[in-house]
Design a protein around this nucleic acid. Structure first.
Length: 213
DNA sequence: CCAAAGATGTTCT
DNA sequence: GAACATCTTTGGT
């Protein structure tokens, strides 16, 4: 990671104004929240550095009515956060290796959530900073911004005073999106609750775009 | 390029 | 023990 520039950079590109997503935003059905999170930004503040990820892929998970959900069999020590109020993070360990981050949605007790599957890491405002990185997969996304199980239960719907929150551009246009079956599950596979930004065309530069050096 | 194996926390059988 | 809301590494076509 690039260290914070001490004097600030007057040439830092100025983002257009953004709106912080509040609790009513999350207190809606998971498939609605999942779709509306596409194009929004996950913001994580860790050790004085702010990471911003533009979300491009999400998945909705229900509660007891969804066999593919961790909450299908009721609250456990791991997924208890899902049964709490909306707008809190639910971070769990996947295959003993990766961290996966969700936001709790719906009315309290419905135990629904949205899994953050992929995004684009926005470069920091440091001059010559690292270019945007494509974070494909929930485990890579959490690792890039430093989200771990320690963040599970954190409230990310009470403004920018915490360490995690969500933003969306004030002049938000409805982005084109696509719904598909969820990835990596074996139950309820016909439910199309995976949402991805519908990119017009993948920039294909005539075959393998290997970066020369 | 595609397929298979390996790592390993939490939960269920 | 076995299954998982996964990703990396290795080895074979």
């Amino acid at each position: 990671m690039t260290p914070v520039s001490p004097g600030g950079d007057p040439r830092a590109p100025r983002e257009s104004s953004t709106v912080v997503l509040d609790r009513p935003f999350f207190a809606r059905p998971p498939e609605v929240v999942a779709r509306d999170l596409l194009g929004a930004f996950l913001v994580v503040r860790a050790a004085g550095v702010i990471h911003r990820v533009r979300l491009v892929e999400t998945e909705a998970y229900g509660g007891r009515d969804d066999p593919a959900s961790h909450a299908a069999r009721g609250p456990t020590p791991r997924c208890a956060v899902m049964f709490g109020p909306a707008g809190h993070l639910y971070v769990y360990r996947s295959y003993g290796v990766h961290w996966c981050a969700n936001v709790v949605t719906g009315v309290e007790g419905s135990a629904s959530a949205v899994l953050l599957r992929a995004g684009d890491l926005v470069s920091d405002d440091a001059p010559g900073g690292s270019p945007p990185a494509a974070l494909r997969g929930p485990g890579l996304l959490t690792r890039a911004v430093g989200l771990t199980g320690a963040h599970s239960g954190a409230d990310c719907a009470s403004g920018v005073t915490g360490s995690v929150w969500f933003e969306r551009p004030a002049r938000a246009r409805r982005a084109a999106w696509r719904a598909t079956p969820r990835v990596g599950i074996s139950k309820e596979t016909d439910r199309e609750w995976r949402f991805v930004l519908d990119v017009p065309r993948e920039p294909r530069r005539g075959g393998v775009a290997r970066r020369p050096r």
